[in-house]
């Protein structure tokens, strides 16, 4: 378990380092995500080496973003001024995205 966490942190560190020394506009943790996928695909590491840690992290991911949600309390005035435009954007965009994605996938996918 501890070793699995060390692997995850190693890839996070490499991602952050690349993001820090180069000018790519991609956050280090997202680079880490791409790197760990590539390492698994190239068999540099095995799924069982990292799965114990990744399963735990994904299981509790929602807990980790609660503090950001609580941060909304500092923007109460902003939200009460703009709740209308925020709601229109959220609802229209979500329905449109759902429809277009499902339509393209349904038209093109192969069934077997």
């Amino acid at each position: 378990m501890l070793k699995a966490f060390l692997w995850i942190f190693l890839f996070l560190g490499i991602g952050e380092l690349i993001s820090y020394v180069t000018d790519v506009p991609i956050p280090g943790n997202i680079l880490g995500m791409i790197l760990i996928f590539s390492a698994l695909k190239l068999k540099l590491i095995h799924l069982k080496d990292v799965k114990p840690a990744s399963d735990q992290l994904l299981k509790y991911m929602v807990l980790f973003y609660v503090p950001y949600g609580v941060g909304l309390m500092s923007y109460f005035d902003f939200i009460s001024s703009y709740w209308m435009v925020l709601s229109v954007i959220a609802v229209v965009t979500t329905l449109l995205t759902l429809y277009i994605t499902a339509l393209v996938q349904q038209k093109l996918e192969k069934h077997d």
């Binding site: 890839f11 799965k51 990744s54 991911m61 980790f64 503090p67 609580v70």
Partner: peptide
Amino acid sequence: FEDYNKGGKYLSFFLGPAIVALGVLFYE
């Protein structure tokens, strides 16, 4: 909020490794 977030930020920190874990999920 600033006082609450003195602790909250330790939880937020784990969002970084959680994003890396998404790469593992993708492979699976």
